[in-house]
Amino acid sequence: MPIRAGEWLAHGSQPEWTMTVVEKTQGAPRDAGPLAELDDHGLVAACLAGRRDAFDLLVDRHKRSVYLLCYRFVGTHEDASDLSQDVFLRAYRGLRRFRGDSSFATWLYRIGVNVCLNRVSMRQPLQRSLDEMPNLAAPQADPAVALVRREEARRVRAAVARLPRKQRTALILRVYHDLPHKEIASALGTSVGAVKANFFHALANLKKLLAADTRSGS
């Protein structure tokens, strides 16, 4: 509901301007109607039948996880934003190939991983300075603690970026997206055993990389 600044003023004086606070519309698009009640498979079917607004709802449901996945791979907001758009665009183009054997999220992860790995193989992620890094959502009360955490996060992201592709993918999907090994295997088109092995080696290599980084830093 719009709230007008004039209603807040005491003594009945009217301002020369009014400010309208509009309710945040993030989430379902307007006039989504019964589409919003459909699950992902239903939205895919509606989209294939010509309802473009059904895809808008799918984007709203999965944009955060897709963006975070992309960020984990490329490490910059701009690249993650571009890649997220690319992931959804490819998903839209290939929507007819979605069979529904897996969840839509898993299918989207598969596209996302392919898009990200292609981008990463084309160019190395930019190494941004600490000053260029975006602010964290929850600012730390102690600036020194925040700085240490940022530095630690940068070190871990840099180490993850140096992992082999399969190990990096398994680690990102398992640790940061909490996907079960079975879904990761489905997304990557491999076996559960292979995913677990890649996850194990990813952690082992990460330990070595972080230790080497600590030694070189000191």
Binding site: K63, Y67, H77, S81, P134, L136, V156, Y176, L203
Partner: peptide, 29 residues
């Protein structure tokens, strides 16, 4: 190693970014 890795947070983008991303995708689609 898993504990160190899990604690790594992604910087949260601006709240306006999510609407911006939706609009970008909708335009492209």
């Amino acid at each position: 190693t898993l504990a160190v890795t899990s604690a790594n947070e992604v910087p949260e983008p601006s709240p306006l970014f999510w609407d911006h991303l939706s609009a970008r995708v909708a335009r492209a689609v």
